[in-house]
């Protein structure tokens, strides 16, 4: 066990005039993650702390938050890898704060809906699955591994200044379907993509790439999507 200090963002809009940080000293076990620390605080020290969590295995994306200035998943971030003390924990930036580390994710899901993140194909369904070769599958890259945690979108300054901007996660999803050879829905997505709040707000600063806990590269996907849309327009 080692004692570590955690500075955690606290804000209750019903009682607090402005946000503040509260410091906790925790005896940390060697394999603990940030989520283990939050659970320790919530269950044994301060039950008023609010945060989201679910699967604890880096799949559901619920526990995305900013730790020492970089968005990440609390359940994947090992304390032992972090030398800095205190460790500062903030909610995902760019979203309205509900309470403490829990934010209003509605703008994120609204943006996602605008790119129609589902397979669009009006051809009659085959008797079994719609087959893809390995080469066709490779066109989508690893974009299918996105868990929609919003770490990327929340790290994007274009999203901070324009709440209606689609953001890297929705654009990565649009890339995933646009480059899916089974999908025929680009003409239905193009209005949302080729838009003042769409593709052209990305200025390639790669914050999304740095923040993604699954090592995906939304910046590269956005570049390919921009090229595809320009080709489509020409």
């Amino acid at each position: 066990m080692a004692k570590r200090t955690f500075k955690i963002f606290r804000f209750n809009p019903e009682t607090d005039e402005k946000p503040s940080y509260k410091t906790y000293e925790i005896d940390v076990q060697p394999a603990w993650t940030i989520l283990d620390v939050l659970n320790e605080i919530k269950w044994f020290q301060d039950g008023t702390l609010t945060y989201r969590r679910s699967c604890r295995h880096g799949i559901c994306g619920s526990c995305a938050m900013m730790v020492n200035g970089i968005n990440n998943l609390a359940c994947e971030l090992q304390i032992a890898t972090m030398k800095k003390d205190p460790i500062v924990i903030d909610p995902l930036p760019g979203f309205e704060i509900y309470k403490d580390l829990a934010v209003n994710m509605d703008p994120f899901y609204e943006a996602l809906k605008r790119v129609k993140p589902w397979l669009i194909n009006n051809d009659p369904a085959p008797s079994r699955e719609r087959l893809q070769s390995q080469e066709e599958f490779a066109l989508m890259g690893n974009s299918i591994a996105c868990i929609l945690c919003a770490a990327c979108t929340s790290s994007c300054p274009s999203f901070w200044t324009d709440g209606e901007y689609l953001g890297p996660a929705a654009l990565l999803k649009a890339f995933r379907y646009t480059f899916d050879t089974r999908d025929h829905g680009l003409d239905q997505r193009i209005e949302a993509l080729d838009n003042k709040h769409g593709l052209w707000r990305c200025h390639k600063i790669t914050n999304c790439f740095t923040a993604c806990p699954k090592n995906l590269n939304p910046t590269e996907a956005i570049s390919k999507l921009q090229k595809r849309i320009v080709e489509e327009k020409l």
Binding site: D194, N195, K196, G198, L199, W200, I229, K233, L234
Partner: peptide, 13 residues
Amino acid sequence: FGTQSGGSTAWIW
């Protein structure tokens, strides 16, 4: 205003 072209034309130019 200014959104009809979507942005792709300005972007490529």
